[in-house]
Design a protein around this nucleic acid. Sequence first.
DNA 1: TTATTTAGTGAATATTGAGTAACAATAGTT
DNA 2: AACTATTGTTACTCAATATTCACTAAATAA
Lengths: 226, 226
Amino acid sequence: MSKWANAVPSRAEQTDNKRKAIIREAARVFNRRGSHGTTLDDVAERLGVTKTALYRYVNNKNDLLFACHEEAMEIANEHLGIGERDGSNGLEKIRIGMTGYLRTMISDMGVPVLILEENALADGTAGPIIALRDAFEKRLRRLVEEGIRDGSIVPVNPKLAVFMLLGAVHWVTKWYSPEGPWTAEQASEALIELATRGFSAQPGAALTSDLHQSIMSFTAARPNEG
Amino acid sequence: MSKWANAVPSRAEQTDNKRKAIIREAARVFNRRGSHGTTLDDVAERLGVTKTALYRYVNNKNDLLFACHEEAMEIANEHLGIGERDGSNGLEKIRIGMTGYLRTMISDMGVPVLILEENALADGTAGPIIALRDAFEKRLRRLVEEGIRDGSIVPVNPKLAVFMLLGAVHWVTKWYSPEGPWTAEQASEALIELATRGFSAQPGAALTSDLHQSIMSFTAARPNEG
DNA sequence: TTATTTAGTGAATATTGAGTAACAATAGTT
DNA sequence: AACTATTGTTACTCAATATTCACTAAATAA
């Protein structure tokens, strides 16, 4: 059955890879310009094919957007799981989970995708994605509450804490560029450390991440500015 | 000359008011759905007029978007000025300025507007707005640096600190609703306190804002969810 | 080799939404 | 009242872009 000891990808695998490539590339552009501001021609061009070719792999634009969100949520939950497993208290779980999430998104998809533009998803289709997002946020809130109980997090409104954290994380879309001086690793760690320090019960007297150590390097990438 | 002791607004004043109303309403929708995701029909409908009527007051959609950003930046700078005047150190200046900015934006325009979608502004017109935004960010960074020097802010990468803060602030777009349980005042204060605590040199052992005190009210508005 | 399935192309087609033109109503002016 | 300027409407035009169609080339299977 299997030829070449499976070293050569099968047709189905290739198709799957292509679909994933489309989703990844679309996610990048959607994040930068918003889904409404992005044409399928844009996406296709970046992949070196024609727009029509995309339709072999996705049903329509809405479908593609849906897939982007779905993938982002998958990654998010995966990392939150790691955090829950490896962290020893609420705060640590959040830090590990969110740092991993952010790092993966930045390096893999260019940037996080979760930003759900209201009404961007066509009627009806938004429901499932919103449900996923809400579940994710709830999971994060639970960790905040856990942290408050175990003493790692200061008494804080969990909803607000999560909104603050997600805002800081998703805004990365606007300023991070892989061409800039910061690696995905550095940026993720430094940002999460900074943001979570806001509700840490024992905020260290100094920040430990690279980027904060060398605060003389005041220049960062900013792709879309003159 | 002046009739009714100027109690009745002049023609020019009315025109001006209408233009402002358009900008405010447009800002709200742009913030929610992005400018690409918003049609002028949407804006007009919310104002109870037809699209064509808008064209009496703005030249075109791009013009309108431009005006929105301009107004947002004006408010931002105004409040940063207040912060610089009234705050006694870098951290306080930032807190006062940003809390005021956020409160005003939330109650006045529904929500902050600064979110500049790449390519949303037509070629050429983006320049001035980006310049304004950059100036604003630089002004914020200066305050962070000032805070580091005067000991109110922990050594931190100023760029990253500003990005974190702005992310937390602008994300408000996604979750705040005036119909929800939180007033603009409450939300602004609690959010800024939380976010700036991330780089405060003397982070208090507890958060003082209303919303954090009563952490049992775990429910907040979330307009677009089931 | 020959047939069949898969991947992709370029040219239609349909829809959406910005912007315009011609007219209607309204209010202010003489 | 008659005249004029202002504000708004209805009914378009036109460009951009999503989606579909008919067809070609390449890969796989028989």
